[in-house]
Computed example of a mutant assay.
Amino acid sequence: MTHYLDHAATSPPTREVLEAVWPYLVQVTANPASVHTPGQQARDGLERARAAAAAALGCRPGEVVFTSGGTEADGLAVLGVAPAVVASRGRERHLVTTAVEHAAVLEPARELERRGWRVDVVGVDGEGRVDVAALAEVVTERTALVSVMHANNEVGTVQPLAGPGGVAELCAQRGVALHVDAVQSAGVLDLPGLWALGSSAGGVAAVSVSAHKLGGLRGSGLLAVRSGTPLEPLALGGGQERGRRSGTVDVASAVGLATALAGAAARREHEVARLAGLRDRLVAGVLRAGAAAGVDVSLTGAAPGAGRLPGHASFVLPGLSGELVLAELDLAGVACSSGSACSADSDDASHVLLAMGLSEDAARTSVRATLGWSSTEADVDALLEALPTALARAQR
């Protein structure tokens, strides 16, 4: 039996999702754009999913654009919204983002730079939190788009988007559209509250979500785009999704995403408390094991209870190989990771940890354990039981 502690990479689909999508895999299988009865049945399922997803996000159904996942949703925001704002609102070709964003934002940002855009990448503090004062120095009323994630996938730090002096307020005051990558926060943070941090005049204008991080199906996501926010489609063809994203929509995946979002929203208060309890016990146990083994284990990211995702724990183990520790844990039936699954095959040190001020050597020792809907006390027990041996073997 494997004890799975890598929910930031992906979570298994929930039973309610599997039951919800099954009819759309074997019974209601027509193209939702077709005008015949089977097509309209599929269309009805798609629009019900859109309405349910919108209710969980706090937006309108017509503001939901289904995508193939969080990566496409991020790309659609950066490469679709930003140029459209320039074309329709006369803004400068200027994008502002942070040094700890996912590659799904940073790579499109680099593409804009190759097209002649000015891209400002703002730094973070030692916990991975964006410097809002530094952000304020580069965001102007002429900026096309600001993109700041809700919470970081590698260290779990929640960004200061809300409240006085937050990123959303800054963007609203300057009339600038803000895109938020909510791939890691969906299901555990307040997405309707996030959506409320914007209007047609500025602030939160687009939010990206991925289904498989919260119990939906892989290859499914959405971009919520506020009414009035211009958007240039990246995929051209049949004009689906109101011309914003061409291609036959995968109804089953959309139903799965909506079901996962609705279920997570209904259980959020209880689930956040449960995950935070598991995380706190995990963090305390890992730090104790490190001290007992003579390893200076340090928690990376914000402290538990101080702006950190409830199911997220990440560490560096100076002097050890993080990959070797992970391999030893895997042999013991415990699955953790070293950071972003999207860059797991890269030899480069984590750009997130480097931006936080860690050395390349320290950044290469990272270990991440993340919890989700299927996590139990037994999973934490298994990690804490296997860790002392893994640390001892990694020191040989």
Rank of each mutant, 00 (worst) to 15 (best):
H36P: 13
A134L: 07
M356N: 10
A51E: 13
G90E: 05
G277Q: 07
V21H: 00
G285V: 04
V204G: 11
A168M: 05
G128I: 04
A252R: 02
A211L: 14
A133S: 10
R142Q: 11
S321T: 00
T37S: 14
G165E: 05
H3R: 11
T300P: 09
R93F: 07
A382L: 07
E63T: 01
H7F: 13
A293H: 01
L76I: 06
A313R: 02
R142E: 12
A258I: 00
L326C: 14
A20P: 13
V249P: 07
S375H: 03
V295N: 13
A144Y: 01
G237S: 10
G166Q: 02
H3G: 15
C59Q: 11
P23L: 04
G202L: 04
G216A: 12
L25E: 14
L46N: 08
L222I: 12
H270M: 04
V295I: 11
L320P: 01
A313S: 14
A332G: 14
G307Q: 11
R267V: 01
G166D: 02
C342H: 14
L257H: 06
S210L: 04
E360C: 00
V155Q: 03
R91E: 03
G123F: 09
H36E: 12
R129K: 06
G203Y: 03
A104D: 15
A51F: 06
V139N: 01
L95S: 05
D330V: 06
T140G: 15
A182K: 07
V249Y: 01
S346N: 08
S147C: 15
V272I: 11
A254E: 14
A104H: 09
A335I: 10
A168T: 08
E377C: 06
P32S: 08
A394Y: 12
C59A: 15
G322R: 07
S147T: 13
S88F: 01
D120S: 15
D296A: 13
L309A: 14
L5A: 10
L329D: 03
A30P: 04
G128S: 10
L135F: 07
L383F: 01
R267G: 15
G203F: 00
A196C: 13
V209K: 03
P304H: 08
A276F: 05
A341M: 05
L391H: 00
D280Q: 06
E385D: 15
A103P: 00
S147E: 05
S88I: 02
V325P: 02
D250Q: 12
A201E: 09
E101R: 05
L135E: 09
R281T: 08
T376F: 07
A264F: 01
L189K: 03
F66P: 02
